[in-house]
Simulated scan of single mutants.
Amino acid sequence: MRAVTVTPGVPDSLRLVEDWPEPAPEEGAILVEALAVGVCGTDHEIVAGEYGEAPPGQERLVLGHESLGRVLEDPTGTLQPGDLVAGVVRHPDPVPCANCAVDEWDMCRNGLYTEHGIKGLPGFARERWRLQPKFAVGLDPALASVGMLLEPASVVAKAWDHIERIGRRAEWTPKSVLITGAGPIGLLAALLGSQRELSVHVLDRNTTGPKPDLVRALGATYHTSSV
């Protein structure tokens, strides 16, 4: 089985390994065939040796935290063979902290969490991987070309959730939103803003390229000068 790996902390140690072992059953009951992985700034920083942590007892870390796969087998019945699935990246710490104890491990307080492809868990940039049912997110078949964007979309959804929780502390009826940057995260933020029927304004430095049209396609206004 092939896998894309690095030696954490060693700059430019990125390697395609041809004989990576099959995923261990301990990783989860759901066996998945990889279809695609996303690549973001986090991956670039791990390849540069800035951070990253291999699983215990291993020297290399399989990259890939933005996942899309197709279920090969699931004896638990959570998903069916052929279903599209994405993996939850972060797993709770074993202690657990107060947040991990109530399944809010994205807000882990003691830093003992693990993350696929980043910290202590093998990533999804391998031909096959396994998931525990709790960390498997089934996707609509219509998302076959973009399902790997679920992870970055979840980051933006969490930000919107916090914004709205804070806003509800008082009478709050927002009409517009300004998003700085039209990279993938900015575009996803604009998408969720448009879904909330806000007047969305996106500020970016680029005057050419695909960004202006992508922003307009989301129903937002694109700016390159002062807003």
Rank of each mutant, 00 (worst) to 15 (best):
G181P: 05
F135Q: 07
R165W: 06
H223D: 13
H44P: 02
R90W: 10
G82I: 13
Q58V: 11
T5H: 05
L139C: 06
Q132D: 14
L188S: 02
P25C: 13
E22H: 07
L149T: 02
A29D: 15
A189R: 02
V71E: 00
G183E: 09
V200K: 01
G28P: 10
D103V: 06
R130E: 07
R165K: 13
F135G: 05
A220I: 04
L143D: 10
A182G: 12
R2P: 14
R109L: 15
P133Y: 05
V177I: 10
A54Y: 05
Q132P: 06
A220F: 09
W160K: 03
A101V: 03
D204G: 05
I185W: 06
E164C: 12
L178K: 07
R165L: 12
D103K: 05
A144W: 12
T221M: 09
S194C: 08
G82S: 13
S176F: 02
D74N: 06
W160G: 00
A24T: 09
G123V: 00
L198V: 00
K119T: 02
R169C: 04
L121K: 01
G77H: 09
M1Y: 07
A153K: 09
P21I: 08
L187V: 03
D106G: 15
G120Y: 04
G77C: 14
L35V: 11
L149W: 08
E26D: 08
